[in-house]
Simulated assay, not measured.
Amino acid sequence: MNKYQNISNDGFKLNYCVKGTGKPILVIGSSVYYPHLFSEHLYDTFQFIFLDHRGFVRPPRTLEPKDYILDKILDDIEIARQALGLTNFIILGHSGHAFMALEYAKKYPDHVQKVVLLNSAPTNSEERQRQSVAFFNETASPERKKQFEKDIALLESDIMKDPERRFVHMCIRMGAQSLYDYTFDAAYMWEDVYTNMPIIDHLWGEAFGELNLIQSLAGFNKPIFIGLGRYDYLVAPVSLWGSVDDTYESVKKVIFEYSGHNPMFEEPQSFDKELIKWIGESK
């Protein structure tokens, strides 16, 4: 059982939990969901701090559009960093949270030593989403497609029964696009995860579609680890990152060949080895 504390900013109570000891790695996202994904082996080497953002906490008031903007979330992270006394730390963002991690490091670079970006496409634009759907339809195995069709058919009824957890239901029912083992049921990971849908809708539907991580790398010289899953159809194909090659001296890109959207969970030994090696070697 994880022990939770919270940091308040602008009325939002952002929960966090700490696992392990060593060099601090701040993981942005849900403090309930993300501890499921990383191996105990990593907690022997690093101190992981799992921090909520506004999209995963109950609103303190009726929200206005100004409460949703990405800059507010970046400021929340900075308030949390100050409260936690973090200096010379690594910030990690997975999936949509990769946009948050890199934008935070650009806005508040002083105490960020390195950045880890996992399983994100360079942008969440509608055009890129269409590309990912097309790639799945053209390259996924018949068995994977059949499992996806079976699962996604249940999404509408899930949402009708529990509309406030629409994001969670979608993540669960899209398992055949997000997991190497497309028969694996990841529903347990999402238990007790609260989702603030107006904020999530804005971030994933608008803010992340206006950003491009490859463009954001320009002029950013801190070490960056980019981890991708070969079978991560949610943000496929990995060739979207093809322009990030050896000419990006500060970037380490690793493709995990037997993973979908969560290589830290699906290939823990390979993931741990690559991450530990990179943290030790990159300056």
Score class of each variant (00 low, 15 high):
Ile255Ala: 06
Ala153Val: 11
Ser216Pro: 01
Val168Asp: 07
Thr247Gln: 05
Ser216Leu: 12
Lys253Met: 04
Phe220Cys: 06
Thr195Asp: 02
Asp151Trp: 05
Glu156Thr: 14
Ser243His: 03
Trp190Lys: 05
Met197Trp: 03
Ser243Asn: 04
Glu206Lys: 09
Phe184Asp: 07
Asp232Pro: 02
Arg173Pro: 08
Leu155Lys: 13
Ile224Ser: 03
Tyr231Ser: 05
Met170Phe: 14
Tyr182Ser: 10
Asp232Arg: 03
Phe208Asn: 07
Thr195Tyr: 09
Thr247Asn: 05
Gly260Trp: 11
Val254Cys: 08
Val244Gly: 00
Ile159Arg: 14
Leu217His: 03
Val244Asn: 00
Met197Gln: 11
Glu249Gly: 08
Pro163Glu: 14
Arg166Cys: 10
Ile159Trp: 12
Phe225Ala: 02
Pro223Asp: 08
Gln215Cys: 03
Phe220Tyr: 13
Asp246Met: 04
Asp158Ile: 11
Tyr231Thr: 01
Ala236Pro: 01
Gly209Phe: 04
Trp241Ser: 00
His169Trp: 15
Phe220Leu: 10
Met170Thr: 15
Gly175Cys: 11
Tyr231Lys: 05
Cys171Pro: 09
Val244His: 00
Pro223Ser: 07
Trp204Lys: 08
Tyr233Ala: 08
Trp241Thr: 00
Ala186His: 10
Gly260His: 11
Ser250Pro: 01
Ser243Lys: 10
Val251Ser: 00
Asn212Ser: 09
His202Thr: 06
Glu149Cys: 02
Ile224Tyr: 06
Ile172Ala: 10
Phe167Lys: 02
Met160Leu: 14
Leu203Gly: 02
Ser178Cys: 13
Ser239Cys: 05
Ala207Ser: 15
Phe220Gly: 04
Thr247Asp: 03
Asp151Thr: 09
Ile226Arg: 00
His169Gly: 10
Thr247Ala: 04
Lys253Phe: 03
Trp190Pro: 01
Pro223Gln: 09
Asp151Lys: 07
Met174Tyr: 13
Gly260Glu: 09
Asn262Ile: 12
Ser239Pro: 04
Asp181Tyr: 08
Cys171Leu: 15
Tyr258Trp: 10
Ile159Cys: 12
Leu240Pro: 00
Ile224Trp: 04
Asp162Asn: 15
Asp192Tyr: 07
Ile200Ser: 00
Met174Thr: 15
Phe167Ser: 05
Leu211Lys: 08
Ser157Cys: 11
Tyr231Trp: 06
Glu257Asp: 12
Leu240Ala: 13
Phe184Met: 11
Asp158Glu: 15
Gly175Ala: 13
Tyr182Phe: 15
Tyr180Pro: 01
Gln215Thr: 12
Pro263Ile: 15
Asp181Pro: 04
Ile200His: 00
Tyr194Gly: 04
Arg165Trp: 11
Thr247His: 05
Gln177Tyr: 13
Ala236Lys: 06
Val193His: 10
